[in-house]
Design a protein around this nucleic acid. Structure first.
Lengths: 349, 349
DNA sequence: CAAGATAATTGGAACGTTCCAATTTTGTCA
DNA sequence: TGACAAAATTGGAACGTTCCAATTATCTTG
């Protein structure tokens, strides 16, 4: 039953033409006569022919493989799932297909999957690097002329394009908003301090406070895993301070949700008794109760932009590194205390 | 700078052996002398050779491509993201790499991506079919001997393996638990009624009620999109009933979270004033407040099992369809009203 | 040391496609 | 109709690997 593959030669024989003609038909070349094309296409349908891209790709080493890779550090984080969906959209409609791999923050795994993808002939890579990724890890890739677009995180010294969100400005805007609402003890909660993203956001927090001549208290900065559970832990610690904060900016939305959970466990009502702002604007941010005030980075849009950038570089053949910082905007919802009437909000659903 | 690919022949020349020997080294054949192997490997490293699987695969059409495909109907749903992570784990450690595509419930898109993956020579496919997928859509795939494992949803009449969770038993257990807690007006909230999964779960709900001689009231079954927003909408409608329910089983966890949101908007405390049970046990279920009582299907484990099944079939060369229904268990947390002391719970984090 | 066995290496064909140069067919016009 | 141009088709080489049969080098043993 496992019939051997039907090949372009089988088609040629059945249609009474040469394999070259069939090939021309496959690439929709204008060189071939209309009636021949029709005949060949009919045979292709009849015999259930499936094009062998591997073979094609072997011959035309100049042209590319219609495969791109995307490797992310944590696919269980819905931010990255959204990002992958964005990439998938543009990649699919460009006739490409994507390898996807999850590294779970392991640089070893990352090295392996990138190597494997390379052997399979990807013509470009979108990478959200695992923590600790070194420029040297990307060296062989870029040396062989394969375009790489880093997203979310940069890797210092690597000559690749990057698309990151404006972490500094985003956090600065969040803090300014809280200050405008009258808060002056504002905590910075969550995230691992050894990452560039953390430090950019932290700097935005500090600068915003300095701008309005508020002191920066180090005890108000409490790091934790960038997860929901981490958020619970962080707010727990923050509430132990002699002088409690009255508001918090969070490393990301997951942390912010955890912070809300932790507040409720202390009978504090997020958005009423304590202001919370997240970062990312994941999809749940708008439907959560209270809806989360957050910095919108539109992960799906970011995925789309990254894919577009990558495809541009692939088509150009040249991959001159460009660093795009994607602007970001504060979306005010309920969790920061600027609540609108709840009945009104519900009617929006 | 775009140096042409270094090939097995370049290696051979540089190492002073034949290309056949280099090939042998690449496949770690025991036929080659230890010192030759070392020499060749050294050259491979020096020249930065990268193996061309496309070419290799062309020759050995018998053996397979080390690529599998996974296509899901909604990657933004964290259930599927988790599933993909599970697949990724076993697939990666088997030396495979995966194409991933999202169909967003479009059968057209699904057809396209499957065709594309086929052209790229996948040796197996894990598929969570889009709504409305017909057995005929999978026909050409299975005809060409490519193993397919359906997950989550079955497609009637297709001769492929499937791995679905025991929807009937899961929902039955959930309802029984609520009955045991003294509820007798129990709603069934969320989900699209035109899906097999919905109907299996609904049947479990009905059977559990019948088992204890409780009447099944149709107005207590309110369908909606299987999302958080859908959950809000569903509970809104349920609360309008003359005789309100006191508890709800939900189509999935996303709906359950929405139901909790909706309850809070009505100043009802989920887990205190109203019992809620979800389905899926997504990762947020344990950290949410209140922690969600739910039916655990362990999406990541399901992904792993699906991948293992697929690899087994690939290696066997035979793909006799087997239908596995994965058993499922009720995880009792806070949202169903069997709350443990909150302080105790927090200390677990 | 002859001779057979074993170990190691090798050249060429094959996989399914594309590309190129060459050839055949068709069309045009004086 | 002859001559030339344009359109359509074609055979063979090439892509980078693996496989096979054949060859050469090395070891055993009587």
């Amino acid at each position: 039953m496992a019939k051997d593959r039907v090949t372009v030669i089988d088609i040629a024989r059945a249609a009474g033409v040469s394999k070259s003609t069939v090939s021309l038909v496959l690439q929709a070349s204008p060189l071939v006569n209309e009636v021949t094309r029709a005949k060949v296409n009919a045979v292709i349908r009849d015999l259930g022919y499936v094009y062998n891209r591997g073979a094609a790709n072997l011959r035309q080493s100049n042209s590319k493989s219609k495969i791109i890779g995307i490797v992310v550090n944590d696919l269980t984080n819905s931010f990255f799932a959204e990002l992958a969906v964005g990439v998938d959209m543009v990649v699919q409609s460009a006739g490409y297909v994507q390898f996807l791999a999850n590294t779970a923050e392991s640089v070893d795994r990352q090295r392996e999957v990138i190597a494997s993808m390379r052997e399979h002939g990807i013509s470009g890579l979108i990478l959200s690097p695992a923590r600790g990724t070194d420029a040297a890890d990307l060296k062989p890739l870029v040396a062989s002329g394969i375009p790489v677009v880093n997203v979310v995180r940069q890797v210092a010294g690597a000559k690749v394009s990057s698309l990151i969100s404006d972490n500094h400005a985003g956090m600065r805007d969040a803090v300014r908003h809280l200050v405008g609402l009258g808060h002056h003890r504002i905590a910075f909660l969550g995230g691992f301090p050894d990452t560039a993203v953390f430090n950019e956001r932290l700097q935005g927090y500090r600068d915003a406070l300095s701008d309005v001549d508020l002191a920066v208290h180090d005890e108000l900065v409490v790091s934790s895993a960038p997860s929901r559970a981490g958020g619970v832990a962080a707010i727990e610690r923050a509430l132990l301070l002699r002088e409690r904060p009255t508001a918090a900016v969070c490393f990301n939305d997951a942390v912010a949700f955890g912070v809300c959970d932790g507040l409720r466990a202390h009978r504090l009502d997020p958005g009423e008794d304590f202001a919370v702002i997240g970062f990312d604007d994941v999809i749940e941010a708008q439907t959560a109760v209270p809806a989360l005030t957050t910095i919108s980075v539109d992960p799906q849009g970011m995925g789309r932009r990254a894919a577009q950038l990558l495809l541009k570089q692939i088509n150009a053949g040249r991959a001159d590194a460009e660093a795009i910082v994607s602007s970001v905007r504060l979306v005010v919802r309920q969790s920061c205390g600027a609540a609108i009437d709840k009945r009104e909000r519900l009617s929006l659903l």
